[in-house]
Write a protein that binds this DNA or RNA. Structure first.
Lengths: 199, 199
DNA sequence: CCTACCGATCGGTAGG
DNA sequence: CCTACCGATCGGTAGG
């Protein structure tokens, strides 16, 4: 459940630590590219160039492109989960808790690292054998939002299932229109959540 | 502003009409594949196979894959625009108008033809020279929603810009979770809109 | 992690 | 719209 491969902080005096630093760099660049262009539109050569390796060398670290995606995806989900849980723990009012969760979700999603963006950008995409595994990770993450919505006092037209779907859609779709020169992700998240407040 | 290339309804007794039927079939299959898998993940060979041509033959109808996307995209936007305007014209209450627009948007988006789905699935993607053209078409379409939201009586926490962004996000993101065996697109759209009603 | 390479697939074209 | 083909690029591998 750590955000980054743990050994990235080891001393670099031996081959193992250096190898791990390269692995971390590789993951970072893969996340950035998958997050910005999507899995299918990113080639192993793109990643190799970004990280300063030759294409074949990537396979020393990951057996396939799909395995690389799974690693990025898992870190991305963990980052969001960790950020949301930490943010929610500081609040007690149900709407304030949801606001905090949305702000954490969005600032992780829109940060430049791209790990969380890779998760959202490739939401339905990878049709291969890893698909079920990725979907399960997402479902587990969304469970937190289900619980947050369960505590909300609702207006007469609202229901919990579609409030959750509408909110997550509003948040995730911001990837399509967000420009980093305007409101901060936190501000955007709070203003999006505000549209669902009936009181 | 027609939904389909007009000549698809011409008699098939000469070469021109037959050629146009093939062109329409080609567009239909391209839309279905772009909508389901996205532009980058669909090859010209996929489309050729679906339409029963050889790969090189596609270039008799469209000079490039990008031109094919632009044609699909334009039809997709036109379909949504037409459906929304027709639906809105039947209502006068502001919320009922927005509901009707959302229902029209979503049933076009989730129908099996894939034209509108191709628009939404490749929202940020095509980075090439056609990008600006596609973005302009979308912006024009979203103008209708801007006007619909302008007529709404709002709650104390709401504002028109973010209500529009949140609603369109909630609607478009349904592509990520919609399964055709549950609620109808119209029902889903109305329930999503209901989450924003403060009264 | 590099060298050197593989077969498959990609968008696209000339000529008919 | 087919035949026949192009150079470029793809994910991936053997051997060191």
């Amino acid at each position: 459940m750590s955000r980054r491969p743990k050994s990235a902080t080891l001393p670099s005096s031996d081959g193992f630590a250096r190898s791990d630093n390269r692995r971390t760099l590789l993951l970072d660049e893969a996340a950035r590219l998958f997050g910005a262009r999507g899995y299918d539109s990113t080639s192993m050569r793109d990643i190799a160039t970004a990280v300063g390796m030759l294409p074949g060398s990537l396979y020393y670290h990951f057996p396939s492109k799909e395995d690389l995606l799974v690693a990025v995806y898992t870190i991305g989900i963990d980052q969001m989960q960790e950020a949301v849980l930490a943010a929610v723990a500081r609040e007690s009012d149900p709407w304030k808790r949801l606001e905090a969760a949305a702000a954490a979700h969005l600032s992780t999603l829109l940060d430049t690292s791209g790990y969380a963006a890779a998760v959202v950008a490739d939401w339905p995409s990878p049709a291969g054998s890893v698909r079920d595994q990725l979907v399960r990770q997402r479902d587990r993450y969304e469970e937190t939002f289900r619980e947050l919505v369960a505590d909300l006092p609702l207006g007469p037209h609202q229901d919990r299932q579609f409030l959750r779907l509408a909110l997550l859609g509003a948040l995730n779709w911001s990837l399509a229109w967000y420009k980093s020169n305007g409101d901060s992700p936190e501000t955007i998240a709070r203003r999006l959540v505000a549209q669902f407040r009936a009181d």
